[in-house]
Design a binder for these strands. Structure first.
Length: 249
DNA sequence: AATCTCTTCAACCGCCTCCGG
DNA sequence: TCCGGAGGCGGTTGAAGAGAT
């Protein structure tokens, strides 16, 4: 166990410890957490220091009740991402992953269980207990794979496309010139994740309308397929501010 | 007023991934 | 290519406070 040989302090942090940690981060900056306990003069392990800073001491951390729009966003993103608390928190300014996780576990999880056995949900807190969660993986975006996802994949399900062929285990093989062996591998989950990402629910005259990937125009696709995005992971793209604004104008 | 039960959330634990040697 | 250390994450725990009896 890390730090056990040093008998580091555990449990609640004191004001004095907070002050030492704060001064240390202000002086040396974030990162290099293994050096923080020594630099700050704290008898705490690196992980404890990091957690205390990220969840409590960091400036601009928002405390108190979650606003209705924050709750809505948490629900939507949880439907999309599952328990990817850090990613969800990344879209909620001032909220930490721990906050979001705690809020979900204490408020929304219970509500989710309750509503799954009832027919009526409050519209503003609509939960989808049966939604299949598509988790983004640290896969690199390539122009070819993205275009196959959105356009060629669906076509391929309905006819014979020379560029693509579906295998028995739901993996799409696509002609992919930037891959060393000429093929890239795209599975249904990945495709669905991108489609969910591009799915916007709009309320018009009291009706919930869904805008699918097919409705998104070329200028939006061009923005996603910006060369700057090549080589980024799905998680990085999800947290990209410009891309986020594309999906949530 | 005392005790019990429930709720909240800060903090810990263990695992995974990444990166440098 | 392998290995070890550091960073990061999600699951879980338990202390403290609030509410019920």
């Amino acid at each position: 166990m890390e730090g056990s040989y040093l008998r580091v302090r555990k449990g609640a942090w004191t004001e004095e410890e907070d002050l030492l940690l704060k001064k240390c981060i202000e002086k040396y900056g974030e990162g290099k957490w293994h050096q923080v306990p020594a630099r700050a003069g704290l008898n705490r392990c690196r992980k404890s220091c990091r957690l205390r800073w990220l969840n409590y001491l960091k400036p601009n951390i928002k405390r108190g009740h979650f606003a209705a729009d924050e709750v809505d966003l948490i629900i939507r993103l949880h439907n999309l991402l599952g328990n990817r608390w850090s990613l969800i928190a990344g879209r909620l300014p001032g909220r930490t992953a721990n906050d979001v996780k705690n809020y979900w576990n204490t408020h929304l999880l219970k509500k989710n269980i309750d509503t799954s056995s009832k027919t009526s949900n409050p519209k503003s807190h609509k939960l989808k207990p049966n939604t299949k969660v598509i988790k983004p993986r640290p896969q690199i975006l390539s122009k070819r794979s993205f275009l196959v996802n959105l356009d060629e994949y669906n076509n391929n399900n309905n006819n014979n496309n020379n560029d693509c062929a579906e295998t028995s285990n739901n993996v799409v093989l696509a002609d992919c010139s930037d891959n060393h062996d000429g093929y890239c591998f795209l599975d249904h989950d990945e495709m669905m994740w991108w489609e969910n990402m591009m799915m916007n629910e709009k309320e018009v005259d009291g009706h919930q309308l869904q805008c699918s990937a097919n409705d998104i125009d070329q200028s939006v696709l061009d923005q996603i397929m910006n060369e700057d995005n090549y080589g980024k992971t799905m998680d990085e793209l999800f947290l990209d501010e410009e891309l986020w604004n594309v999906f949530n104008p």
